[in-house]
Amino acid sequence: MVERGLLLFVLTFFVLFLFFLTFIFRQILYQFLTILLIMVLLGIYYLFLNAEFIAAIQVIVYAGAILIMFLFTIFLFPEEELKYSRDILKTHYSSFLPLGFFLALFLFSLFKAIPKSYKEQNFYFDLKILSKILFNDYWITIYILAFLLSLPMIALYIFFKREERSGSN
């Protein structure tokens, strides 16, 4: 248990450190890199919850696909759009207060809502159990998901269709 506690302590420290760095950086690229590191660290958190498959998917999908998409989009914009001017940062720091209040309320309600039987269950993530539930009891979500995932393709099609039309005019 000591190793687990120590490792989680170090991990949480790193996440908090990166969290502050995200607000300090004034370039979107550097902010993005700290967020990328947080996403990869989150994969390690999932390992501590005995969810190896989700940890791998977290790194493959978030770090490997979604955030690279974002990086490609960043390079489409001119360099001056990707920086914040200093005055914007200064004027808005006071609005951290309601957010901090929200965070305190959130943590308070979480700690209050913990059931008494909330102990470690030695439950190991098993893909076979999960896929049995997913494909037998919740198969309709898979269908909805398939429709939802076709939406980006339709959106891309519309986007390029409009571009073609404006290009020909």
Partner: peptide, 21 residues
């Protein structure tokens, strides 16, 4: 993990797929 119910992790997988889209 702490309630010993695999459905929560299933939700995580679904949310991952949807958020990519």
């Amino acid at each position: 993990h702490y309630l010993g119910d695999p459905k929560g992790k299933m939700v995580v997988l679904l949310v991952l797929a949807i958020s990519a889209g």
